[in-house]
């Protein structure tokens, strides 16, 4: 679904009517490029496009934000306490909405947010074939096995889109590679974008999805109950995630996951990740970047740090599908 259509069908119903009618005035050409819609109280509404920001002349008001929050939570804030505590909501369609405001603390930890002051609405896109060019590097055709893979990407680098397509193709099977049993722990409901339990994105026919579960607990649950051959998760980083991953790897499951960052140096500074990197568990490291548009694969390394491929393929160009 093109971005404008996704915006109109899946985002507009959750925006306060003022915002909705304002966005309808914006030329379609711009809407086709929208990656994020930014709402900040008393500040202009900003559309983040592929090649810069579009500053609008509409000042976002407090009641716009308040109403938008109610609509996004489908008038059920009580059901989204956990999500709000972590600062985001997921809309049907898999679009993630970051939320900031004033924290309400309970024993030093965030209990909930109030006086919401900003939203970051990220338009999620399903791009079938996003993983076409890198899949050959992720699998061992002769053994019919998948390598442990880590996708390293700055925010908005297209890693969720990539993981989703990897999941779909590994699950359905591609070329001479038979489909595998895939388990997805979708803590933020972004990969499969489940809405009331039903995935809104195609993640393959041999895929089991554990929706909205903490990664560490979820991985262990999958290993115990669903006998996956590959587990896919997004954005690992906490110590318990790493421990659960090691546990899963020890029981023979292949792991494909992603992490925020732009270089190996970045990752080695983080204690939880440096541990797993020093043990050289990952056999493939995929670096995404934005040098040639969102989703550029900067390089692919093997576990020893040898360069397998670099800079040659874009998963998708600026807002257009290619590859």
């Amino acid at each position: 679904m093109p971005r404008r259509e996704a915006l109109e069908k899946e985002i507009y119903p959750y925006l306060a009517s003022n915002l909705r009618s304002y966005l309808k005035e914006i030329p379609n050409l711009l809407l086709d490029e929208v990656q994020e819609v930014r709402l900040r109280v008393k500040k202009p509404l900003v559309l983040v496009l592929g090649q810069g920001d579009y500053l609008s002349d509409y000042l976002v008001q407090e009641e716009d934000l308040e109403k938008t929050l109610q609509l996004m939570s489908r008038s059920s804030l009580y059901a989204l306490e956990e999500e709000l505590k972590n600062g985001y909501l997921t809309l049907p369609g898999g679009h993630r909405v970051g939320v900031v405001g004033k924290g309400v603390l309970d024993q030093g930890r965030i209990r909930t947010l109030k006086n919401i002051s900003g939203f970051n609405i990220r338009i999620s896109q399903e791009i079938r074939g996003a993983a076409d060019k890198i899949l050959p590097y992720l699998v061992n055709f002769s053994q019919q096995e998948v390598y442990h893979t880590l996708v390293i990407s700055p925010p908005q680098g297209g890693k969720t889109t990539l993981l989703r397509d990897i999941a779909r193709q590994l699950s359905d099977g591609f070329a001479n590679f038979p489909g595998l049993k895939i388990g997805i722990v979708d803590e933020r409901s972004e990969i499969a974008a489940c809405y009331e339990g039903i995935p809104q994105r195609d993640v393959g026919l041999r895929t089991d999805i554990l929706d909205a579960c903490p990664k560490a607990e979820g991985m262990m649950l999958l290993v115990r109950s669903m006998s996956p051959q590959v587990i896919i998760t997004d954005e690992v980083g906490r110590m318990e995630d790493i421990e659960a991953m090691e546990e899963a790897i020890n029981s023979g499951v292949k792991i494909i996951t992603s992490v925020h960052g732009s270089s190996l140096m970045d990752l080695e500074k983080r204690p939880s990740l440096s541990r797993i990197l020093s043990r050289k568990i990952f056999e493939r490291l995929i670096f995404l970047g934005r040098s040639a548009g969102v989703g550029t694969v900067e390089k692919i390394l093997d576990g020893e740090g040898n360069l397998l491929a670099n800079n040659l393929m874009t998963v998708r160009g600026r807002g257009n599908k290619c590859g």
């Binding site: 109610q70 939570s73 008038s75 804030l77 009580y78």
Partner: peptide, 10 residues
Amino acid sequence: SLGCSDRDNQ
């Protein structure tokens, strides 16, 4: 107050 606060408050 319907729907616009946390569980306890509801």
